[in-house]
């Protein structure tokens, strides 16, 4: 019983981090209808930047994230304006191919800068734990999860309470109605990309002390973030939180009761199963128009 609770706690903590890592993906899809296949590469690049701040300046990853996030946001805007927006104008089907090509470019660039050796940051909390009764809570996971909750709450604040957030909601729900009050969906799109990639950078910072990473880990992370947003329903932000928690628990259970090796297959299996059975996601109330035929 204690082992099960331990597993669940671990799964929920990591699930919170998964939610943070996937929020950007669902936000971009919700408003722009683009599946950003470079999500994993943005995560890994952010992890490397955090890693460099840690190794060269001794900046804690959780602090370093606040330096990396604006840089990544800016990079997101440049790539959006330079490549993704154009590709989408030319052919929406090819835009997704372009984002994947971008992922490979970013992977190559990270490999050229940081080399193929596995990297990870090791702040002093990375291998400590808090004990509550017989349950051990690893500090790294705990801090990462708290961090995820704080950042996600910040993002929720921006979306719920600011002009920009309301403009994002307006443009995603009703582009023509938004134009009539002076909100240009294209301009909002640029902001969304900036915010999404910046949020992803926070996820990358958490990744940097939770996992070892190499440049080509990115395709595993695309799979993971895709499965989170598909579980929760593409485009839904509350869905991402639910999807992250479900995936975190499912992975923890698998690695505890099946094998660690097979736990990496869980996200991909979930993608295939959910899309077969319930393509609108596990938590959506209504089927989306763009899903059902």
């Amino acid at each position: 019983m204690a082992a099960l609770i331990q597993t669940l706690v671990f799964g929920l903590l990591i699930g919170g981090v998964y939610a943070l890592m996937s929020t950007g993906l669902t936000l971009v899809f919700g408003v722009m209808k683009i599946v950003n296949m470079a999500q994993g590469a943005f995560l890994i690049l952010s992890a490397y930047l955090t890693y460099s701040l840690w190794t060269y300046a001794g900046i804690d990853p959780l602090i370093g994230a606040f330096i990396v996030a604006p840089v990544m946001g800016l990079l997101g805007v440049i790539l959006y304006k330079g490549i993704i927006e154009r590709a989408q104008r030319i052919d929406a089907g090819l835009a997704i191919v372009a984002t994947f090509a971008l992922a490979l470019i970013l992977e190559a660039v990270t490999a050229l800068i940081w080399g193929p050796e596995p990297a990870t940051t090791t702040p002093d909390y990375f291998n400590q734990a808090v004990h509550i009764g017989s349950i051990a809570i690893p500090k790294a996971q705990l801090y990462a999860c708290i961090f995820a909750v704080v950042i996600t709450a910040g993002l929720a604040f921006i979306i719920k309470r600011t002009w920009l957030g309301h403009a994002i909601t307006a443009a995603s729900e009703n582009p023509e109605g938004a134009r009539l009050i002076g909100v240009e969906p294209a301009r909002v799109g640029t902001w969304i990309f900036a915010i999404s990639i910046a949020t992803t950078a926070f996820g990358g910072a958490a990744l940097s002390f939770l996992y070892q990473f190499v440049p080509d880990s990115q395709d595993g992370w695309i799979g993971l973030t895709l499965s989170v947003v598909i579980l929760g329903g593409l485009g839904s932000i509350p869905g991402v939180v639910a999807g992250g928690l479900v995936l975190g628990v499912a992975e923890a259970l698998t690695s505890n009761y099946v094998s660690v090796q097979w736990s990496t297959a869980v996200p991909f299996i979930l993608i295939l199963v959910v899309l077969t059975v319930r393509p609108q996601g596990l938590f959506a109330l209504h089927s989306r128009e763009d899903v059902s035929s």
Partner: peptide, 10 residues
């Protein structure tokens, strides 16, 4: 049951 970009994901 899905179309378009879901095929890419699958």
């Amino acid at each position: 049951r899905t179309r378009g970009m879901y095929f890419v994901i699958v």
